[in-house]
């Protein structure tokens, strides 16, 4: 476990050395504050549009950080050949995969904390209400969703030849699931026949990342999602993340390390 944590620590350090997070955070803050400075019909109390835009930027930024950080972990080690001294130590390939995953997940979580702090302060300042538990729930579900995404990208980084291809494909898959994943059953029912069966199978196989998006609950001030449902969703994310990590390990353990 210490080895995994040590590897994760290196990935965490990498995040705060790189400029990605800072650029995305500044962009999010600037766009949100600019939008907040606009008055519609001389009403200073309009806030939901601002919350929606800020949360959208948080989601986009977190996704970019997660995908780009995870995609370059293993290929970078192979390209710079630092994987050899790493594996020469008493470190297994499984620990490398686990350490990279944990590092990316914790790094994304740290970035998310900063984003949600900003969102909470911005929203509270405009709305004068502080639903901390709701924000925590939104943060937690998003973080769990990102665990699945990071595991998916890590497995992609072992399969695809270049990180750019992996990033592009993973973005398409994740956005596709987020936008259409929950509606594939309706598409399948309308199609019918063999195509319908295939679509329905895909619907049952894909991780339903759209479950973890509770932005509407935050924007429209709905009450908390039942904690038991959050627990089941967390378990669902853990199972999918474990599946992708196991697949990554299976692929990585016999993979040639030379580029």
């Amino acid at each position: 476990m210490n080895t995994v944590l040590a590897l994760a620590h290196i990935v965490l350090k990498e995040l705060y050395r790189r400029k990605d997070f800072y650029v995305l955070f500044v962009l999010t803050a600037v766009i949100t504050l600019l939008m907040g400075s606009i008055r519609f019909f001389n009403d200073p109390n309009i806030v939901r549009d601002l919350k929606e835009i800020c949360l959208l930027l948080v989601w986009v930024s977190a996704l970019i950080i997660a995908v780009t950080t995870a995609a370059r972990q293993i290929p970078a080690e192979r390209e710079s050949r630092t994987i050899f001294p790493l594996l020469a130590k008493p470190v297994t390939r499984g620990q490398v995969v686990m350490g990279k995953f944990l590092g990316c997940w914790l790094a994304t979580g740290a970035a998310l904390v900063v984003f949600y702090l900003f969102f909470g302060i911005m929203s509270g300042a405009h709305e004068d209400r502080w639903p901390v538990l709701n924000y925590f729930q939104a943060f937690w579900l998003q973080w769990m969703m990102l665990a699945v995404v990071i595991a998916l990208v890590l497995s992609g980084s072992v399969v695809f030849s270049a990180p750019s291809a992996n990033i592009t494909i993973c973005f398409c898959v994740v956005l596709g699931i987020l936008l259409l994943g929950g509606h594939l059953n309706q598409v399948a029912l309308q199609q019918g026949g063999l195509l319908g069966t295939i679509t329905y199978t895909v619907y049952f196989l894909i991780p339903h990342l759209e479950w973890f998006d509770i932005r509407k609950f935050i924007v429209f001030n709905w009450p908390l999602v039942p904690w038991l449902d959050c627990f089941w969703a967390t378990l669902y994310a853990i199972i999918y993340a474990a599946f992708f990590l196991f697949a990554t390990w299976l692929l990585f353990r016999r993979k040639a390390l030379t580029v």
Binding site: F41, N45, D49, L141, E210, D229, W232, A233
Partner: peptide, 23 residues
């Protein structure tokens, strides 16, 4: 199960909250 993470209750904005549609 996904419905637990969706808004499923039908309500209308009331009173001053209606301003939220204006932007």
């Amino acid at each position: 199960f996904g419905r637990h993470f969706q808004v499923t209750e039908h309500t209308h904005l009331q009173g001053a909250n209606i301003r939220e549609i204006l932007p």
